[in-house]
């Protein structure tokens, strides 16, 4: 995936997670944890498996100025990796940023993550 394709996917989808593996079968603990945080927020998100194409990680490094996987984008904005996403979730900041993107009927069911 090149920079143009990365730009297109993060601007055309409200929430995007670049990860190792998929949200169903994560292949790295940090990727899996980040997917779990987004699932806990009840948002629909697009998962991009960076292991599928060898150039995605270096292209993303240049596009985002971010060297490690996972990476979360919300409405085209770089949020960060596993640490930041988890910290923001625990502080309620991630939910505030997601806002209407969270499924309203299930929003009340959100459980704190251990």
């Amino acid at each position: 995936m090149n920079k143009e394709q990365i730009h297109k996917i993060v601007t055309e989808n409200p929430v995007v997670l670049f990860m190792k593996g998929s949200k169903t079968f994560p292949q790295c603990g940090f990727s899996g944890r980040t997917a779990q945080v987004l699932k806990a927020c009840n948002v629909d998100f697009v998962d991009v498996n960076v292991l599928a194409e060898a150039d995605t990680v270096p292209e993303l490094r240049d596009y985002a100025d971010w060297p490690t996987i996972p990476v979360v984008y919300i409405r085209g904005e770089l949020i960060g990796g596993c640490d930041i996403t988890t910290e923001m979730y625990q502080a309620g900041e991630l939910q505030a940023k997601l806002g209407d993107l969270m499924n309203p009927t299930r929003r009340a069911l959100i459980e704190p993550l251990v």
Binding site: F30, P58, D65, P67, T68, L78, G80, G81, D83, I84
Partner: peptide, 28 residues
């Protein structure tokens, strides 16, 4: 911001991430 802080550290470590000598660094 949180992301800007990590980007500062990432910039310092960039070459080591690129060579994949450094694979995963969790930071506060």
């Amino acid at each position: 911001s949180r992301v800007q802080r990590q980007q500062r550290v990432n910039a310092v470590l960039r070459e080591h991430f690129e060579t994949e000598l450094l694979h995963a660094l969790s930071m506060r």
